[in-house]
Simulated assay, not measured.
Amino acid sequence: MNQTLYLVDNNAIVQLRRERIKSAFFRSFCRITDDVLREAREHPDAALLSRNRYELTPSVLEQVRRVMKTVEVGDTSLVDLYGNTGAADPGLVASALHAIALEEEQLFADTWVIVTNDRAVEAAASGHGIPVLRPAVLAAMIDAT
């Protein structure tokens, strides 16, 4: 199809105003992983966000293994389960890898971009060749449509 799709982190959802989440652009081009949906369950538009769900499947979990293999032992910058931070972050990167892998054989594959303000997610995504966008840039793109 050759379009750009966005996997949106919870920290980006928080920054977007509700009218942006309700926009046609967001509905058409933005996806929310199951892990991020869990983090955003208290958001006033949680039901609307769930319509853009990117499902956590066994294939995505295989990609989580791939992501976690790149994390050094003792490095808690991406995920710190004891500190209760970053639980959705490996799944976000893994979902992008999964989406990209699904389209590898397509002549005109979609481009997948992660939208986040999290430096560790950005580093993990960049390490796997996944582009990253700041929430303010996505907000400007939505406003321009």
Results as ranks from 00 to 15, higher is better:
G129W: 03
A101Y: 01
I100N: 08
V121H: 02
I114H: 08
V115K: 03
P131G: 06
E105V: 03
Q106G: 00
A109W: 04
D110M: 05
D118R: 03
A124T: 02
L107S: 14
N117K: 13
V132W: 03
A101P: 00
V121D: 02
Q106W: 10
Q106L: 15
D110Q: 09
D110E: 11
D118F: 05
F108G: 07
H128I: 01
F108I: 11
A101M: 04
A99S: 13
P131I: 00
H128Q: 11
V121F: 03
A124H: 05
T116H: 06
E122T: 15
S126V: 09
A99I: 00
A124C: 08
A101S: 14
W112Y: 15
A123R: 13
P131K: 11
I114C: 12
E103P: 08
G127D: 03
I114L: 15
A124R: 07
T116E: 04
A124S: 15
L107E: 15
I130K: 04
R119M: 06
E122K: 14
N117L: 09
E105D: 14
G129F: 02
F108L: 13
G129V: 09
V115M: 01
A124N: 05
A123M: 10
A101R: 11
I130G: 10
P131R: 11
P131L: 09
L133S: 09
A125S: 09
A101G: 05
I100Q: 12
A109S: 13
R119V: 11
I114A: 10
E103T: 10
D110S: 12
V113Q: 07
V132P: 03
P131N: 10
E122R: 15
V132K: 04
V115A: 00
L102Y: 00
G127H: 08
I130R: 05
F108Y: 14
T116M: 08
L102K: 13
A99D: 02
W112D: 05
W112G: 09
E104G: 01
L107C: 07
